[in-house]
C-alpha cells in the first residue's frame, strides 16, 4: 500500500522532573507536587523524537504527527516543546486536578485516535510518576491493534510494515507487524534533541486544540483504584569500610550474608 500515509499520534505526559527527588505528601497518599518542577515524561520525549526521526527520514510517508496531552493547563508548555521538535499539530485535554488512571487515559486516547485517523501510535512505555506501564497495552487492546512494547529500534520494512527490536529481560526480541500499531518506547531507542530557539518561535504558530474532559462525556474516567497509603522507601543503611578480607568475611557472616 504505497499510497498509505502515516498519521502518527504521540501522547505525552507532564510529570515531576526526573532529576527531582519525589516526596510523599503530608497526607501520605500521593507525591507532593507543590512547588516542584515538572517536565515531559522522559520516555515520551523519546517517543516524540522517534516520530520526528521517522518523518525526517521519509518525508513522503508521514502526513502528520499529532501530540496530545491530558493534564493541567500547564501541560501546554510540554506540547509546545513537542511542536518545536517537529510535531505538526497538538491537542491539550485539560483535566484540571483530576488524575486519570491508565484505563481512562487509554479510553480518551482512543477517541483522539478515531478523530485523528491515527494509524501509528508512539508513546512512552511508562510514565515515571506512577510507573504503571500499561496505558499503551490497554490502548492497543481497546483498538484491537498489534502492539510492540519497550522498543529499542524501529524500522520501516515498507510503508506499512514495521520491524521493532524490543528490550526483553536478558536480551532483545525482534518482531514485525503491519499498521495500524502501538509502539511503546524504551531508553535506548534514541537520544532526544534539544528544543531549538528558531523552532520554538515557529511552534507558536502551530495549532494547539484545547479540549477538556467534558468533551469526552461518553468516556468513564472515574477512578477504579484507591490509594491507601504511599511511603518512601526505607533509607539504606550506610556502608562500612573494612580493613581486611578476614574482617569482611566476619562482617558478612554477622549479617548472615554468607
Amino acid at each position: 500500500m504505497a499510497s498509505k500515509q502515516l498519521r502518527i499520534l504521540v501522547p505525552v505526559k507532564r510529570v515531576v522532573d526526573y532529576q527531582i527527588r519525589p516526596r510523599v505528601n503530608k497526607a501520605g497518599n500521593a507525591i507532593e507536587t507543590n512547588g516542584v518542577k515538572f517536565s515531559i515524561n522522559p520516555f515520551d520525549d523519546i517517543a516524540v523524537e522517534e516520530a520526528v526521526r521517522i518523518k525526517e527520514k521519509n518525508k513522503s510517508l508521514v502526513e502528520n504527527i499529532h501530540a496530545v496531552s491530558i493534564g493541567p493547563a500547564k501541560a501546554q508548555d510540554i506540547l509546545r516543546n513537542c511542536l518545536a521538535k517537529g510535531a505538526d499539530t497538538s491537542t491539550l485535554i485539560d483535566s484540571k486536578d483530576v488524575q486519570l488512571e491508565p484505563l481512562a487515559v487509554a479510553k480518551v486516547l482512543k477517541e483522539i485516535v478515531d478523530k485523528q485517523k491515527t494509524n501509528l501510535i508512539i508513546m512512552g512505555k511508562q510514565a515515571i510518576d506512577d510507573d504503571c506501564n500499561n496505558t499503551g497495552q490497554m490502548l492497543a487492546g481497546l483498538l484491537n491493534w498489534p502492539q510492540a512494547t519497550n522498543a529499542a529500534k524501529v524500522e520501516f520494512v515498507d510503508s506499512d510494515t514495521v520491524k521493532v527490536t524490543r528490550e526483553i529481560d536478558g536480551g532483545e526480541e525482534t518482531i514485525s507487524g503491519t499498521l495500524p500499531m502501538v509502539i511503546t518506547t524504551d531508553l535506548r531507542l534514541n537520544t532526544p534533541r534539544y528544543v531549538g530557539l528558531q523552532n520554538l518561535m515557529k511552534a507558536k504558530k502551530k495549532p494547539m486544540e484545547k479540549l477538556s474532559l467534558k468533551d469526552f462525556s461518553n468516556v468513564d474516567v472515574q477512578p477504579r483504584l484507591k490509594v491507601i497509603s504511599m511511603e518512601e522507601p526505607k533509607p539504606r543503611a550506610p556502608g562500612v569500610a573494612v580493613k581486611s578480607v578476614d574482617e569482611l568475611i566476619e562482617k558478612l557472616k554477622d549479617v548472615k550474608a554468607i
Binding site: 506501564n133 529499542a152 528490550e167 535506548r188
Partner: peptide, 15 residues
C-alpha cells in the same frame, strides 16, 4: 543512558 530492563517494579518511580 543505561539500558533499562523491560519492566521495573519501581517503588516511587522508574529510577
Amino acid at each position: 543512558r543505561l539500558r533499562g530492563p523491560g519492566n521495573v517494579a519501581g517503588v516511587l518511580r522508574a529510577a
